[in-house]
Simulated assay, not measured.
Amino acid sequence: MSAKTITARVLTAEAFAPFGDVIEPDGSPDKIINQGMCGRFHDLACLDFGSGRAGISLFDAKARTLPHTVDMVERHPEGSQAFMPVDGVPMLVVVAEDEAGRPVNLKAFASQPGQSINLHRGTWHGVLAPLGQPGRFVVVDRIGDGDNLEEFWFPAPFVVDAIEG
């Protein structure tokens, strides 16, 4: 089977909403704290864990380039998962809708400087893919007992060939 191509769109909160949250400052801070020296953009993502607790990890990911092959997606049924680039490296975010336990209708997004994401609990997604250069990412996700990973391997891969715009 030949690969199916998809084109990544620029990441926006509206387009990404069915899959998760875009974490980025928007407008003025909600609060000014620390004697007026810090603006707080409050509660930008909905963390959701079925059991266990929230943990903070640091991922060190190798660079990816376009075209980017997507032969597998995964999901985490017990918790949301947030990715925040430490180095400001953009990332390619591949997500899919769920249909009877299988990923369908893949979509790809390219993050912009200052953007992070939080994937909703149970959202099918591709692997961490920093674009153009390696990247370190703070990851907030579920820490706990039990299996929190499902993988789906496609019979024919998808290829993200370009970014719109």
Score class of each variant (00 low, 15 high):
Ala3Asn: 07
Lys4Asn: 11
Lys4Tyr: 05
Lys4Val: 02
Lys4Gln: 14
Thr5Phe: 00
Thr5Met: 03
Thr7Lys: 15
Thr7Leu: 14
Arg9Thr: 12
Arg9Phe: 02
Thr12Val: 09
Ala13Trp: 08
Ala15Val: 13
Ala17Pro: 01
Phe19Glu: 03
Phe19Gly: 07
Ile23Gln: 00
Asp26Tyr: 13
Gly27Met: 06
Lys31Trp: 15
Cys38Ala: 15
Cys38Thr: 15
Arg40Trp: 06
His42Val: 04
Ala45Glu: 04
Cys46Arg: 11
Asp48Lys: 02
Asp48Leu: 06
Gly50Glu: 15
Gly50Ile: 08
Ala54Gln: 08
Leu58Met: 12
Leu58Pro: 04
Phe59Trp: 07
Lys62Arg: 11
His68Trp: 07
Thr69Arg: 15
Glu74Pro: 10
Arg75Met: 09
Gly79Arg: 04
Gly79Glu: 01
Ser80Val: 03
Ser80Thr: 01
Phe83Tyr: 13
Val89Lys: 04
Met91Leu: 01
Leu92Gly: 09
Val93Lys: 08
Val94Ala: 04
Val95Pro: 11
Asp98Val: 01
Pro103Trp: 10
Pro103Val: 10
Asn105Lys: 09
Leu106Arg: 02
Ala110Ser: 13
Ser111Met: 03
Gln115Gly: 08
Gln115Val: 10
Leu119Ser: 06
Ala129Gln: 09
Pro130Ile: 02
Gly132Cys: 06
Gly132Asp: 03
Arg136Val: 12
Val140Asn: 06
Arg142Phe: 00
Ile143Phe: 09
Ile143His: 06
Gly144Asn: 09
Asp145Tyr: 14
Asn148His: 11
Glu150Tyr: 04
Trp153Phe: 13
Trp153Ala: 14
Phe154Trp: 10
Phe154Arg: 05
Pro155Ala: 08
Pro157Phe: 02
Pro157Gly: 00
Phe158Glu: 12
Val159Lys: 15
Val160Pro: 01
Asp161Asn: 14
Ala162Phe: 04
Ala162Asp: 14
Ile163Pro: 02
Ile163Glu: 01
